[in-house]
Design a protein around this nucleic acid. Structure first.
Length: 527
RNA sequence: GGGUCUAUAGCGCAGCCAGGUAGCGCACAGGACUCUUAAUCCUGCUGUCGAGGGUUCGAAUCCCUCUAGACCCGCCA
């Protein structure tokens, strides 16, 4: 690859942006604002995959701007989506609100105006924490303000044609029978119980009947209300198979990524946009779902949901951005145990960016530097910062649980890893410390000790009580010998008590680090 | 029925999406830190890149076929 072939910063994001621009040019559309969109779910706890959709869309926005175009990210919360299932760990009191749009359900935690806003806020908070900027829009406002009205009208008028096409494209036949529009019942506020029976085009009204319906395998009772919904202002929503298209056209969206689970919906929506609404569909990129470590889809009901907030307890914002920007293709099993590698990988990228690590392959160098810039949202630091291996911090954190930041810092200085400890390193020690506490919990080992061994431990405790103990290593060795125990076995016992393992660091200096009294206290528990 | 992903060292994985010397972690072997073990550091070993074909000066990487596994859609949004 030669120099002039490199687009933008040389990453997949730049390539995507470039494809997008080429496509827009060949469509002959105006290029003064290339708007990108990310859809946010508002019905369940937003996991890191939902965050990824928005983070990557923002990356595309940055790439477009970098190539000289104006761009904007719309974060659209689908808060007219009906609640179908109570997410794991949420109050059962939500039961009465099943099938209602999430923005019409009170927030069970009382901190937001609705259940939907509570969920959306978790995601928006995640975006804020990693530095993503966006323009927030909500389904409920979009429908109330009639922003989609013309497109809804067109879609409903051509519902027969659309129903047939859906059947042809994805094999789903229900829209040959029903209108792709779900009114919210004016009487009971429920969404899926209200069946749209007829569209009165000249009045822009959908007639509906609220009757019993099934969601999943759950029966939901309708209230029997017969009503009319004005598509220009009443609440209701288009079915997903056509809603994206209406929104894309109304918002003039030129790019939206999607997960493979909604591939079929996107296929239909593309057709609806192109053929029914006469709005060339946005450019897309498909991504795989994040899976948990067992290869299962992250699902709220399994309780394996991984949020940005959870990640940020242990990892830096940049580690999330790196995860999401390093690539988009491929299935990925993801867990919190990926954090250490990502934190370290970021440091490596920084070293490459500032020339501290040499990379021979020119293309790879450009790509790595570009990735570094995206992880910094195209605003990279001017200077390299100090790096400490995250795993080292975890190991040190396991040893020092009290006054952790201070004592780990001191150790880093002793090791010569750092010249001085700055606040970002202290912050990282905090994160690594939480990681150590959470995932390397040392359980108390049940040890069957002989009286000979107990005597030896008692002797050692006495020695450790002395202030002027000089050579702990040798003291232990002597203690074992005096008690007629193989030193090897004695060391093993000590490792088990202190570290929970059968081996470990050289124990003399190690005890010094932890503190003689601290160790003595622990040993007493076994005598 | 439709679609997607995955397969690389003993194990776990990166590299593939913009082709250019096969990499990382763990494990293993040796060494440093005065006896005694290595959290830490250094050195070393480990390969039919699932199989077959194609494109290319050059393929783990791009294309096609096949095999095995996983997942998604065909309720709903």
């Amino acid at each position: 690859m030669s120099e002039q072939d490199i687009i933008g910063k040389g990453t997949w994001i730049d390539k995507l942006a470039s494809e997008l621009i080429d496509r827009e040019k060949s469509l002959g559309r105006k290029l003064d604002l290339l708007r990108v969109e990310s859809g946010l779910g508002a019905s369940g706890i937003p996991h890191i995959g939902s965050l990824g959709d928005a983070v990557r869309a923002y990356g595309v926005k940055l790439a477009l701007e970098n190539l000289g175009y104006k761009s904007e990210l719309i974060a659209y919360s689908d808060d007219l989506d009906g609640l179908r299932k109570i997410p794991e760990g949420m109050p059962q009191s939500l039961e009465e609100h099943i099938a209602k749009p999430v923005s019409l359900i009170p927030d069970p935690y009382g901190c937001h105006e609705s259940y939907g806003m509570h969920m959306s806020s978790i995601l928006l908070d995640g975006l804020d924490k990693v530095g993503i900027k966006y323009e927030f829009r909500r389904a409920i406002d979009t429908y109330k303000n009639g922003i989609l009205k013309d497109n809804i009208h067109t879609i409903l008028q051509k519902s027969t044609e659309i129903g047939d096409k859906i059947s042809e494209l994805v094999g789903q036949e229900k829209y040959q029978k029903y209108l792709p529009y779900f009114p919210v019942c004016a009487n009971c506020n429920r969404l899926y119980t209200a069946e749209a029976t007829e569209y009165v085009a000249n009045e822009k009204i959908v007639k509906y009947t609220c009757h019993d319906a099934e969601i999943g395998n759950k029966k939901i009772s309708g209230c029997g209300h017969n009503g009319e919904a004005d598509i220009t202002k009443d609440l209701g929503k288009l079915a997903w198979k056509v809603e994206f298209a209406a929104r894309w056209a109304a918002f003039d969206i030129r790019f939206e990524a999607y997960g493979k689970d909604i591939m079929d919906s996107v296929k239909v929506n593309d057709w609806v946009a192109d053929e029914i609404l006469n709005f060339p569909h946005p450019h897309h990129v498909k991504y795989e779902m994040f899976l948990d470590k067992g290869g299962k889809k992250i699902s709220k009901s399994l309780g394996n949901v991984l949020t940005a907030q959870r990640w940020l307890e242990f990892g830096t914002p940049k580690s999330i951005l790196l995860l999401l920007y390093k690539r988009i293709t491929g299935a990925r099993e993801l867990g919190l145990d990926d954090i250490p590698d990502l934190v370290n990988e970021y440091n490596e990228l920084e070293d490459i960016y500032f020339g501290k690590i040499k990379v021979d392959n020119q293309a790879k160098l450009v790509k790595s530097k570009g990735l570094y810039e995206y992880v910094n949202l195209l605003n990279p630091p001017k200077q390299i910062s100090q790096h400490v291996n995250y795993r080292l911090l975890i190991e040190l954190s396991k040893i020092f649980r009290e006054n952790r930041i201070e004592r780990v810092s001191k150790k880093l200085l002793d090791y010569g890893v750092l010249k001085n400890v700055e606040s970002d390193i202290e912050n990282l020690i905090g994160l690594a410390g939480k990681f150590a506490d959470e995932f390397d919990e040392q359980e108390k080992i049940e040890l069957e000790l002989t009286s000979k061994e107990k005597n030896a431990i008692n002797a050692l405790i006495e020695e450790l009580g002395k202030d002027s103990l000089e050579d702990i290593q040798n003291t232990i060795y002597q203690t074992a010998k005096n008690s007629d125990i193989e030193p090897k076995d004695f060391f093993k016992i000590l490792y088990q008590i202190i570290l929970g393992t059968t081996r470990g660091p050289k124990i003399g200096p190690f005890i010094q680090d932890i503190g003689q009294k601290q160790v003595a206290k622990k040993l007493v528990e076994y005598t």
